[in-house]
């Protein structure tokens, strides 16, 4: 059953068109990832879906609720984890969760029970009475998530919930989200870390410059790569010798199978082991020096690179 349907979403800020016609849908119980580099338009898209501001054009439906026209109706069913920490620093984790729970309409013993349960989920029961301002970045992020799930939302929307935290907290958060999803909560997760999206999401949309350039399951996206791995050769003076290298490689590979990036030569191939020695040999013939060789299995990073010619992270 389709839970969320987003059609031809656009948003302009003055001259700048941040989102240029985004279309996707999310099924109930699914976990959907929105992967894109900084400034791709992830937050802008998310903010329209959560009803924070209306789109310039396009439609958003949650079940049959028109989010653009009735944001308050939709917001009851959506939990949002904003990109920034949206908590009162001078209040404790307990007080914050109680406050947000009340604002969502919970009260009495139901509220207390829910706050305790959420503290358990985010693993902060023992620090509940401490002020948020005394927490580490990772702990704050966890409370930030906790505040979004108090009212049992059907759809949990997370905007880069792991930005700038230590690996341990990050793992904890990923585990938590995975578990929530397994218990039936539908999740939309944005990130510019492909590992997170690969780990969590059944379906993925890749967004760049306000446009979804590819979407599908991880498997489908990998197929776009025709299952080709990447061979990354870091070469001294690759730029100066690009013409020479080009000439040597042209005999062995087609244009589409290799590209230059920064000080690297990248070659796409289904069976990297077979061509590696020949490749290294050819490149050294041009008189350049290879400083490292790396083989990467097909992943979202390579899909993005393949589609845009750029890395996800710069």
């Amino acid at each position: 059953m389709e839970l969320l349907n987003v059609q031809h979403l656009r948003k302009s800020f003055g001259q700048l068109e941040a989102v240029k016609g985004v279309t996707f849908s999310v099924k109930k119980g699914e976990s959907f990832g929105l992967l894109g580099p900084n400034g791709a338009g992830k937050s802008t898209t998310i903010n329209m879906i959560t009803g924070l501001f209306p789109p310039t054009s396009g439609s958003i439906f949650l079940h049959d609720i028109d989010v653009v026209k009735q944001p308050k109706q939709a917001q009851k069913r959506i939990g949002v984890v904003p990109q920034e920490i949206a908590l009162y620093q001078e209040m404790s984790a307990w007080e914050n969760l109680k406050f947000w729970g009340r604002i969502y309409g919970l009260n009495g013993s139901q509220l207390t029970r829910k706050v305790e349960e959420v503290l358990e989920i985010i693993g902060l029961s023992d620090r509940a009475k401490d002020k948020v301002s005394t927490f580490s970045g990772g702990m704050k992020r966890r409370v930030n998530i906790g505040a979004a799930i108090l009212h049992n939302p059907e759809l949990l929307i997370m905007d880069e919930p792991t930005v700038g935290i230590d690996p341990q907290s990050r793992n904890h958060i990923l585990e938590t989200v995975k578990q929530l999803n397994e218990e039936g909560m539908t999740v939309i997760y944005t990130s510019h870390y492909m590992e997170e999206v690969e780990y969590l999401c059944e379906r993925i949309g890749i967004i760049d410059h306000g446009v979804v350039i590819a979407s599908g399951t991880l498997k489908e996206l990998r197929e776009k790569m025709e299952d080709r791995s990447r061979i990354k050769l870091t070469i001294d003076g690759v730029k100066e010798n690009a013409a020479d290298i080009n000439k040597v490689l042209a005999g062995h590979f087609s244009e589409k199978e290799f590209q230059f990036q920064d000080n690297q030569l990248i070659v796409f191939h289904k069976e990297p082991q077979l061509v590696l020695s020949e490749l290294v040999h050819s490149v050294t013939e041009t008189g350049t020096r290879i400083t490292s060789v790396d083989i990467v299995e097909p992943n979202l990073e390579s899909v993005f690179l393949h589609l845009t010619g750029r890395n996800l992270r710069d």
Binding site: P82, E84, A86
Partner: peptide
């Protein structure tokens, strides 16, 4: 000016 206001707007609060 702080993110909490965004969260306030995303709750039931009119």
């Amino acid at each position: 000016e702080e993110p909490v206001y965004q969260r306030l707007q995303l709750t039931n609060l009119t």
